[in-house]
Design a protein around this nucleic acid. Sequence first.
DNA 1: AGCTAAGCGAGACGGTACGTCACGTCTTAGG
DNA 2: CCTAAGACGTGACGTACCGTCTCGCTTAGCT
Lengths: 198, 198, 198, 198
Amino acid sequence: MQPSSPARPVGRGAKVRAAVHAAALAELVDKGYAALTVESVAQRAGVHKTTVYRRWKDRESLLTDALAEHMATDVPVPDTGSIETDLRALARSLVQAYTSPTGQAVLAAMFTGLPEAAAARRHVFDDRLVRAEPVVTRAVGRGELPADTDPGEVLKTLAAPIYLRLLVTADPVDESTADRAVHVTLAAARAGACGPAR
Amino acid sequence: MQPSSPARPVGRGAKVRAAVHAAALAELVDKGYAALTVESVAQRAGVHKTTVYRRWKDRESLLTDALAEHMATDVPVPDTGSIETDLRALARSLVQAYTSPTGQAVLAAMFTGLPEAAAARRHVFDDRLVRAEPVVTRAVGRGELPADTDPGEVLKTLAAPIYLRLLVTADPVDESTADRAVHVTLAAARAGACGPAR
Amino acid sequence: MQPSSPARPVGRGAKVRAAVHAAALAELVDKGYAALTVESVAQRAGVHKTTVYRRWKDRESLLTDALAEHMATDVPVPDTGSIETDLRALARSLVQAYTSPTGQAVLAAMFTGLPEAAAARRHVFDDRLVRAEPVVTRAVGRGELPADTDPGEVLKTLAAPIYLRLLVTADPVDESTADRAVHVTLAAARAGACGPAR
Amino acid sequence: MQPSSPARPVGRGAKVRAAVHAAALAELVDKGYAALTVESVAQRAGVHKTTVYRRWKDRESLLTDALAEHMATDVPVPDTGSIETDLRALARSLVQAYTSPTGQAVLAAMFTGLPEAAAARRHVFDDRLVRAEPVVTRAVGRGELPADTDPGEVLKTLAAPIYLRLLVTADPVDESTADRAVHVTLAAARAGACGPAR
DNA sequence: AGCTAAGCGAGACGGTACGTCACGTCTTAGG
DNA sequence: CCTAAGACGTGACGTACCGTCTCGCTTAGCT
């Protein structure tokens, strides 16, 4: 009569979930976003199609969920004592994240223009941004940057050229791209261009 | 009405082409990229589906073609005599292009992650870049920027934060966004951060 | 109550069995044969789906079992001393059995063309036939019908037009239908048409 | 030639229709009503599933349509000059129609208890009834049967025992069944039991 | 009265078929 | 000649129900 155990024993559901996530990402890398079938994901995960639909409403939500989970991996926030090396580390880790084959596929998948993905996108980026803000705050504390510097602006200035190359121009992206972004960002921030809006 | 000139290749094909293009863009704005049907485009254009397929290989090429045509509208390149006002004009025109409802739809359509769109994307951006380069060149000539400044880098630095906001974070984009981009870009360029790679 | 034949302690299984039977019939009346779900029957019986499958092999056997149980209700065999009134009573009770809403549903369910149901059908009908035969035998004894009259034939002749209307034509079936069947049957039987095959 | 707008040139649609009908009946004979798949019918007809769904709303309407078409074959109405031989011919043709393997399958399919089939059933039976009525009318004219005989009642009396055996008891049905039905019917009709209701 | 084993609730799962949608191809008429 | 009209093969979609399975809880029935 009474619910003896309030929590439901999830059983092996978690295992299925993980397997499907992994399969989805693998299929993403192999075939790309558009040519990705629920059935092939299910098969790759050793699971039946209907089981997938039991947990995810449709293809979209499966994909966004898998991507969100994938992006949730913690990114280390550097603290070298110098804003330049800190920014360099951030920029390079961003470059690395998206230049692997998997990264490319994930990137392509996240930017499909679908409104569903937009929220996930924004959330992922915001999360990383917030976590990295201390880098700038510390630099301001050390007097490396003007007092009224907006940490978010600095980090967006750092990321912007990298994303531009990844998403718009298809220029090759490597460490020199990261380094150049650092220089631009530092020059702008030191000149006070990352202060409050005017 | 008109005496049909012998061996006229055009026929009324051009009219059909334009009608389909317009219909495609209209559907894009109304329903978005994913929920866009060849049949509905054809119907909206007052044309039969098969006619569309006669002229375009598939949905993809129809869309990219329509978008390419849409983006081909000439963007005026400013020449105010000052790099700051020139850049501001460029940045603001970019912002305007993408903040209208149509612009939003076009933007979303161009960034669908599909490889077919990538080429179109790159081409459009490169084209605009090349046309805008004189702005920077002239500034260098006037001594406003260092002699070894790379015009492309300057313009990418200008565009990057705007695209970042449009595509990644969903921050509101308006004239102040454009102005801030100008400040960042100028600070960086003057500091020599847009010179050749080091 | 009853001696458990397989030497099995019945437990409360009997209660479940009855509840499911009732629920099955109720669902049959509400939704019809085709749109009847094991799960909905189980829910209506306040029992879990698995429990149903523990007792019945599949949907089919549940339904046929429930129907068989339902039909097992004893039909009183009349003995008025006259073959005409006896047959009338039989015919009218048949009509009554199938003109109630429940009767209609049961009828529809029993004639689904499925081979599984065929056996049940046949069994139910044969059973009733055998139990009613004394009616004819007694009439023969009283000299109301020829000596070589086949009781089964008489009763089938009686039932046939009623079933025809129920199953084939959708003519309304009421007491006058029963009475007409009696007249036909008596005329035929008295003329010796229900004797042995020739 | 043809008015282009109102009449649509069916093209080869008719051929598809026939092929699917034939395939449906064949599958019916092979696998029975319940285990009949739209996909297997389509495949057997050398046609794709969606094509079937383009012409028929669902499995049900496909089946009923195919059966209706199948039953539309004209049944010859005998006219031997004697009611007995006429009825015998009718009864035997009925028996023959349902004792072939195909007939069995069709019979089973027509009596699935589904309400959709009910209308078709009724229509088919009524049609045959009306066409056969002259047999009785002529006999009345010849003075073989009472003047107030209801032709429909006679024919239903004839058909009823055959359908009873086919649908309810699973007794074997052959020519002797038909002959017996004739005797019963004649005896009843001559005795005036097929007159107007009393 | 306690221990064991069956019965049951709960629900995930593999599986089959359903009916739908859009794509891109093809054939037939017609202006 | 190009177009309108529309049937078709194709493949994936998302849904519904089937019948199976495993897990604990409850409870019955023997000792």
